[in-house]
Amino acid sequence: MSEKKPGDFVEIQLGRRNFLQIVGMTGAASGLGLPVAAHAAAIAAVAHSAAPAEVDGLALVRFKVNGKAQSLKVDPRTTLLDALRDHLQLTGTKKGCDHGQCGACTVHVNGRRVNSCLSLAAMHEGDEVTTLEGLGQPGNLHPMQQAFLEHDGYQCGYCTSGQIMSAVALMKEPCGPANADVKEAMSGNICRCGAYSNIVAAIQQVRKA
């Protein structure tokens, strides 16, 4: 692939579909109907000659996760969630629906809470990502983690990672003082065990501290 130039349209990944771009994409979405194996082989060959360093069809992502620089080569289809869990073994972040409908996968990107299941890992070049593991560990818990512990702000613990990440992000978001305000702001995190009142109590304790 061609050199990366600042201000240019930068290819950071070379996959089999690069073939389309190299040979010129047509309206017929060339190749979609080809048998996949043959297609992949053909592209790999083209890609090889063009950019030997990136023939494996993986996207390069360099980002900071919990303060530590990481450089990952991932399938472009890999979500931020799966990259954290499968590539960095940060399994504290959970998959509950994979469609942004439960909040279990909530992490911070550049200090803001997002659903990591609806974001590609490749979109996070240069970002700072924080997961539950990055907040604190047993013996050195973040005040929000401690508050969840004291208030029994969970039952099974599976949605807890997302709840706590949302709760910590909430501290910096505009949110009214009432329990109802916290409940509305936290509604993107489903707790099927229904530990909601304890979660709200934990958050309010930290907010008032």
């Binding site: 201000g7 930068v10 950071i12 472009p76 289809r77 590609l120 070049e125």
Partner: peptide
Amino acid sequence: PFVFSRATDPGKAISAAAKSSTAQQGAEV
């Protein structure tokens, strides 16, 4: 599978996307 790329200039993004047969359902880009 898809090719993932990052645009840093709107013009280049637009010309790349213009290769799609549609911008509606079924868009290739």
